[in-house]
Computed example of a mutant assay.
Amino acid sequence: MGGRTRGPGWYRGDCHVHSVHSDGELTPAELAAAARAAGLDFLAVTEHNCAAQPGAWDGIGGDDLLILPGQEVTTRTGHWLALGLRPGQLVDWQHRVGEEAFRRALREVRAAGGLCVAAHPHAPYPGGDLMFPLESFDTVEVWNGEWTSDRPWNADNEAAHAEWGRRLAAGVHAGHWQPALGNSDTHLAGQLGTPQTVVYAEELSTPAILAALRAGRSWIAESAAVELEFTAEADGRRAGVGERLATGGRPVELRLRLAGVPDPRVRVHTERGKADWETGRVVGAAGTSFVRVEVRHPDGRMAALTNPILLS
């Protein structure tokens, strides 16, 4: 449910953060303090088109806070995140849609063991609207908090989330679906961890966190106050978010534990459509390749959403 452990367990993080070394107002030390106060276990440094300054983050992380080196690759036809870069590695941002330089940049990030994330696909400013094909990336940022720190959900997030949801079934059937991420895109004080991605990783390390994000073993929360556990059971087997459940053709029983969302509105999504949550809900395995849930406030704002449990 999000408890802290050095070994296998759930870890909370924010993978889109800016400091004074690009266009943020907080120093690395202030960001680290804010991360700890927000209940985060890991933080990705994603300055615009520059590598983390040498020594700027030295001694700031620790056993309780992992710092991941990264970059926001800021182009004229959209932004994307390169997570898990080598120290000092700088990704070329001088590329546009359809250019080989874009594909080469993706290859360089992956060769370093990193993750390529489509950032805020529908951001409301010049160059922020992503024109690169979503299928080029490993994951998609469907929830970005930069413009919504007081109400962490808006029409741009709704559009990104809907686009991701519409593409999910085809991706699962093709064997190449893209997990959803949620990040604060922090530039100002008070934004960090709103929202945040909660991942199940084998340990609190850069390779383990990136592997969990890549596999979709994660869900998104509006803050550390939200706790969620979603599982599916069939034919004596059980699976969680991002895992595959062999159903044996039997009906799938869904279980949800949720806290921190007053008067929640929960909906179950499959490729056959969506339905309101009911305790002990059972779905038929035939006709759908996945099941996921989203939790909203009564006014429609998102509070949490999961990546899918895959059914076979």
Results as ranks from 00 to 15, higher is better:
residue 165 G to Y: 03
residue 166 R to V: 09
residue 166 R to A: 10
residue 167 R to L: 12
residue 167 R to W: 03
residue 168 L to A: 10
residue 168 L to N: 07
residue 168 L to H: 10
residue 168 L to M: 08
residue 169 A to S: 15
residue 170 A to F: 13
residue 171 G to I: 11
residue 171 G to L: 02
residue 172 V to Y: 11
residue 172 V to M: 07
residue 174 A to D: 13
residue 176 H to I: 06
residue 176 H to N: 14
residue 176 H to E: 13
residue 177 W to V: 10
residue 178 Q to K: 15
residue 179 P to H: 10
residue 180 A to L: 01
residue 180 A to Y: 03
residue 181 L to Y: 04
residue 182 G to T: 10
residue 185 D to V: 07
residue 186 T to M: 12
residue 187 H to K: 14
residue 187 H to N: 13
residue 187 H to M: 12
residue 188 L to R: 15
residue 188 L to G: 11
residue 189 A to W: 00
residue 191 Q to G: 13
residue 191 Q to E: 15
residue 191 Q to T: 12
residue 193 G to I: 07
residue 193 G to A: 06
residue 193 G to T: 06
residue 194 T to D: 06
residue 195 P to V: 14
residue 198 V to A: 09
residue 198 V to R: 03
residue 198 V to D: 05
residue 200 Y to H: 14
residue 200 Y to G: 02
residue 204 L to I: 09
residue 205 S to H: 13
residue 206 T to W: 04
residue 207 P to H: 06
residue 207 P to R: 08
residue 208 A to Y: 03
residue 208 A to L: 05
residue 210 L to M: 00
residue 210 L to A: 03
residue 210 L to I: 10
residue 211 A to Y: 03
residue 212 A to Y: 01
residue 213 L to F: 00
residue 213 L to E: 00
residue 213 L to W: 01
residue 214 R to M: 01
residue 215 A to W: 11
residue 215 A to R: 14
residue 216 G to H: 04
residue 216 G to W: 00
residue 217 R to W: 07
residue 217 R to H: 12
residue 218 S to N: 12
residue 218 S to A: 15
residue 218 S to C: 15
residue 219 W to N: 01
residue 219 W to E: 04
residue 220 I to Q: 14
residue 221 A to L: 03
residue 221 A to R: 00
residue 221 A to N: 02
residue 221 A to D: 01
residue 221 A to Y: 01
residue 222 E to H: 10
residue 222 E to K: 07
residue 222 E to T: 06
residue 223 S to Q: 02
residue 223 S to L: 05
residue 223 S to H: 05
residue 224 A to C: 06
residue 224 A to W: 00
residue 225 A to P: 02
residue 226 V to D: 01
residue 226 V to F: 01
residue 227 E to D: 14
residue 227 E to M: 09
residue 227 E to N: 14
residue 227 E to P: 02
residue 229 E to W: 03
residue 231 T to D: 07
residue 232 A to P: 11
residue 232 A to G: 14
residue 233 E to A: 15
residue 233 E to S: 15
residue 234 A to I: 10
residue 234 A to H: 08
residue 235 D to P: 07
residue 235 D to T: 10
